[in-house]
């Protein structure tokens, strides 16, 4: 049974697209068939983070408006066979999305994939409303700081009221993913404590992704961090989070950067 997962946050710049790419790749690396959809029409990024920007011919809007078939718009990843992308349109805006069209596409993708991951735009308007509309599971991405936590709280309220599941009175599964976590700053009291974030948001924790240069480096080379540097701290945190999404019990730790040997440094340069 396919699962539709929305990666959302309310606030921008907290790591939704990075998380979509990393979780999508991690699930695909584990043998699941995965499609990631970019709902950020007009400000698309997921294609860049996945290194597929030059391969986009048809996009989500073309399919929503019936100008292209789904099979024509899906872009298969070159590194992981079971990972596909449905890109957003850069030249249109979010009004081009219709609820009926999005619902039809998601129903069609449910037949073909194990996971349908919707990368929500920031905000609480049409784009993010439609990204969460048909979801079964939500990953709420939050940075340990007050504005991000409050925005996430707002989004959780919307997940519990505006999704199709919520309207039918069914339970919406929600997970919290804390990103850009810096243990040293938490110790110094410069960030909200994890326990405080959990207390405020009161949804189960899926994982804690440490702040790392590897994330930025992976984005710049157009490869999800779990593929680009699978042994790095953020990649290990994402791989653990993906296992938890599949129902595995993995002890909650914050991976730390292993001291990179000369060999792996050389190897990474080459990549």
């Amino acid at each position: 049974m396919a699962k539709v997962l929305v990666v959302t946050s309310g606030k921008g710049g907290v790591g939704k697209t990075t998380t979509t790419a990393a979780l999508g790749a991690a699930l695909a690396q584990g043998g699941q068939s995965v499609v990631v959809i970019d709902f950020d029409v007009g400000l698309r990024n997921l294609d860049l983070v996945l290194g597929a920007e030059r391969r986009v011919v048809y996009d989500l809007i073309n399919v929503v408006q019936g100008e292209a078939k789904l099979s024509q718009a899906l872009i298969r990843d070159k590194r992981v066979e079971t990972l596909s992308l449905l890109a957003a349109s850069q030249t249109r805006d979010k009004d081009a999305l219709s609820e009926e069209g999005v619902g039809r596409i998601i129903a069609e993708l449910r037949e073909k994939f194990d996971w349908v991951i919707c990368d929500s735009p920031a905000g609480i308007e049409r784009g993010s409303a439609l990204a969460m509309r048909f979801a079964d599971v939500a990953v709420v991405v939050t940075n340990p700081e007050v504005s991000s936590v409050r925005d996430s709280d707002r989004i959780i309220g919307l997940l519990d009221s505006k999704t199709e599941r919520a309207e039918k009175g069914e339970r919406m599964e929600k997970h919290l993913l804390i990103t850009r976590f810096d243990p040293a700053r938490e110790m110094r009291g410069e960030m909200l404590k994890t326990e405080d974030v959990l207390e405020i948001l009161s949804i189960p924790l899926l994982g804690i992704i440490p702040e790392s240069e590897e994330v930025l480096r992976a984005s710049n080379v157009g490869s999800p961090v779990t593929l680009n540097a699978p042994l790095s701290a953020p990649a290990r945190a994402y791989l653990d989070a993906a296992k938890r999404l599949r129902g595995e019990v993995v002890a909650m730790t914050v991976p730390t950067e292993r001291r990179a040997g000369l060999l792996s440094k050389l190897f990474r340069r080459a990549a």
Binding site: I124, R150, D151, D153, R154, I156, G157, L158, D160, S202
Partner: peptide, 8 residues
Amino acid sequence: DKPVRSGQ
């Protein structure tokens, strides 16, 4: 019997 979220 559930939390009242921001914006609600």
